[in-house]
Amino acid sequence: MTVARDFFDLRMAGLYLPGLVLLMINPRVPWLSDWYPEFPWLPLIAFFSLLSAVYFHGLSRNVFGPGGPEANPLKRGEVIRGIQVAVTGKGPHTNHPESFVGMMMNFRKNPELLGKKGTVFVFLWVVSFLIWTAAIPFSIYVGATQFESLSVTAQLLLFAEIVWVLQWYVWRYYSPSYLLDRDDFKNS
C-alpha cells in the first residue's frame, strides 16, 4: 500500500497549524479578553483559522487539481481566473479578468456572478482569512513565550508552524528547475 505524497505536503498541512497550535496552547487573548472576558475568544479564533485553512485548501485543490501547484503549475492570471470559475461555477476561464483588481471590479459590477451562496462564501472566507492571518503571529508569539511549559505535542506543532512560515520565505528564492525547459536558458 502506498500513501500519496500530497497527503504529507507541508504547505497544505501548514494551513491548519495556527488554529491547532492555539487550541493546544490555550492562551489568553490580549485586548479581547480584557474587553469582554466572558466570551470564548480563543475557540472563535481557532474556528475561523481552521475554516480559512479549509477554504484555502479546497480552493487550491479546485484551481490546481489534486496534485496542487507543483503537479499543475499555472501562471498568475490563470490562477486568478481559476479562482473566479471555482467560486462562481461559471466559465470558461477566458470570460473572467486575469488580475486581482479586475476580479474585484468584476464582482462589484456583476454581483449576480456570485449569487447568494457565493457572496456568503466570499464574506466568510474574507473574515476567516483576516482572523487566520492574525492567528499566525499570535500563535508563534504565544508558543515561543510559553515554550518550556508546553507539552511535547504542542512544541512539535509550534516547531512545524515556524518551519511552515519560514519555508515560504526561503523557498521562493529557488527556481523549480524541474519545471524549466531548455528554452528558459537561452539568454542566460
Rank of each mutant, 00 (worst) to 15 (best):
V87E: 03
P73V: 10
V120F: 09
K75A: 13
E98W: 04
R108D: 01
F100A: 14
A71R: 12
L114K: 10
F123I: 14
K116V: 15
K116F: 12
N110P: 06
T119G: 11
V85A: 01
T119V: 07
H93N: 03
V122W: 01
N72I: 02
M105T: 09
P111A: 06
V85M: 05
L74P: 02
G118V: 11
G102C: 03
A71P: 04
V120E: 01
I83Q: 09
N72H: 14
P73E: 10
N72Q: 12
P111T: 02
E78G: 14
L114V: 10
H96D: 07
E112G: 13
N110H: 14
V79D: 00
P111Q: 05
G82N: 07
G102A: 05
S99V: 08
L74Q: 13
K75H: 07
R81C: 11
L114W: 09
N110R: 13
V79E: 02
K117E: 15
T94V: 11
Q84Y: 08
E112V: 10
I80W: 06
V120G: 01
T88H: 09
Q84F: 04
V122L: 15
G115T: 10
R76Y: 01
H93V: 11
T119A: 03
P92W: 00
G102Q: 00
L114E: 04
E78F: 02
K116W: 10
L113I: 09
R81G: 10
G115W: 12
K90H: 10
K109P: 06
M104T: 01
N110Y: 12
A71D: 13
L114G: 08
H93G: 09
F107G: 10
G82Y: 08
G115P: 13
P111W: 07
G91D: 05
R108W: 14
M103W: 03
A86G: 05
N72K: 09
V79N: 05
G91P: 03
V122N: 05
E98I: 06
V101L: 08
M105F: 06
K90W: 03
N106M: 11
G89K: 07
K109T: 12
E98Q: 12
F100C: 06
P92I: 03
K116L: 15
G89S: 03
G118L: 13
R81H: 10
T94L: 07
E98R: 06
M105Q: 11
T119S: 11
V87L: 14
E78T: 09
V101H: 00
G115Y: 11
G115R: 10
G89P: 04
T119W: 05
F123N: 02
F121C: 02
K116G: 12
L114M: 13
T88V: 12
Q84G: 13
E98P: 02
V120I: 15
G118P: 12
H96L: 03
F121Y: 15
E78H: 10
V79Y: 01
R81W: 04
K90V: 14
E98M: 02
R108V: 07
V79T: 09
V79F: 06
P73H: 09
K90S: 10
K75V: 07
H96K: 05
R76K: 13
V101K: 08
A86Q: 05
R81V: 09
M105N: 07
K116P: 09
N106P: 00
